[in-house]
Design a protein around this nucleic acid. Sequence first.
DNA 1: TTGACATGTTACTGACCAGTAAGTACCTAT
DNA 2: ATAGGTACTTACTGGTCAGTAACATGTCAA
Lengths: 204, 204
Amino acid sequence: MSRAKTAPPQHSRRPAADLPPRDRILAAARELFYARGIRAVSVDEIAAAADTNKMTLYRHFESKDRLVAEYLRLLADEADAFWEQVGRAHPRDARKQLETWLQHLCEGMADPANRGCAFANAAVEIPEKDHPAREVIERHKISQRDHIARLCRNAGFSGPEKLADEIFLLLEGARVNMQSMGREGPCHRMPELFRMLLNSKAPD
Amino acid sequence: MSRAKTAPPQHSRRPAADLPPRDRILAAARELFYARGIRAVSVDEIAAAADTNKMTLYRHFESKDRLVAEYLRLLADEADAFWEQVGRAHPRDARKQLETWLQHLCEGMADPANRGCAFANAAVEIPEKDHPAREVIERHKISQRDHIARLCRNAGFSGPEKLADEIFLLLEGARVNMQSMGREGPCHRMPELFRMLLNSKAPD
DNA sequence: TTGACATGTTACTGACCAGTAAGTACCTAT
DNA sequence: ATAGGTACTTACTGGTCAGTAACATGTCAA
C-alpha cells in the first residue's frame, strides 16, 4: 500500500502550545483522522502532531479505538452546540433554523479541505459493530435526524417525518458524492434541491 | 487498533478451485475489500482466501494499490453489463429501465452483507488523488450519472439533468446512510421517494 | 526428453503498527 | 523542602505490513 505519508506538510500549524496535552491530542487527531482517514493515521503521528509523545497519549486515552470514539464525540458536541446557537438566533422560526443549517453546511463544503461527514466516513471505515466509535456515530446520526424532523414539524411542513428523511438522504448523498465526483458534481445542486423541497411542503 | 481480524469465518466458501489464480484473487479481493474495507485487508489475507500465496498475487498485480484499482474496475464492468442487460430487456422504455435499476438496488440493500456503494466507500478510504483507484472511481461515477441523465432525457422527464442529479444524490445518500443508521433508518424510504420524484417529473 | 512457463513454498527485508516499561524533568501545593 | 502528580524521553515488545529473492514443483507442448 502506498504508505499515505504524503502529508508531513509542516505548514499545518501546531495546536496552540498552551493547551493541555489532552486537548492538543484531540485537536491533532481531529485534523488527521478527518483529512486522511482513521485507519491511515497512526497514534505516533497524532502524538507528534500534538507536540507530545505516545506515552502521554496513552495516559489520556486507553486505546486508539477509544481515541477515535472521543474524536467523534467532540464533533458531535460541536454539532449540538451549533444547533443550540441557531435555536437562540432564530427562536420560534424553525424554517429559518433549517435554512441556517443548510447555509452552514454549504459553507463547509466550499472549504477545499472538506471531506464530507466525519461520521458517515467513520461508519464506512469501521464496519465492526462492537467498535466504541459505532455507538457515537449511531447516536449522533439519530439525534441529527430527529432534530431535523422536530424542526420540520414545528415549521408546519406537511409530512414532516418523510420530509426529514428526504432532507437527510439528500444531504448525506451530497456530502459523500462530493468525495468521488468533486464539488462541481451533482452535489452542487444541493442548496437548490433543499429549498425546492422545503417550498413544496411549506404550510399555507 | 483492535485488529479487525474478527473474520476468519471459514464458512465463506473458497472460490471455485478450477478458476485461474488471477480470477480467484480478484474474487477474494472483491469479497474482503467490500466487506471489511480496503485498508483493513492485507494482501496476505487475500492470497490465503484465494487459495494461493502472496508471490502469485504479485505476479498478477504489481502492487496492492493496483489490485484495488482492478477490484473496482471489475465492479464497474459488471455495472455496465447490468445496464446493457436492462437496456435489452426494456428497449425504448427508459422509465422502465430506471425502475428496474431501482429494483436491483433495493434488492442489493436487502442483503445483510450490503455495505453500500463500493466506489463511494473506496473514495472515503482513499483521499489521495494520485491513487490508481481514483481514476476508476471517478470515471465510473460520471458514467453512471450520465447514463441516468440520458435515460431521464429519453423518458421525456422535465429537467432531466437536474432530475438525474437529484436521483443520484438520493441514492448515494441512502447507501451511505444505511451504514450508520441501518436498513430501517431513513434509507428505507428510498423507493418511495424515487418513485415520487419520477412521477412529479413525468411527461404528459 | 527436454524445455518453457505458470504456480507454489519458504524465508526474508525493512518499515510500520499498537501498546508498554522504566526512569527523568517539571510544576505546584503544602 | 518536599512530596505528588503530570508530562517528557528513550527504548522496547511482539506483531503486521507490503514487497522480494531463491528455489521447488507441476504441466504441457515440441
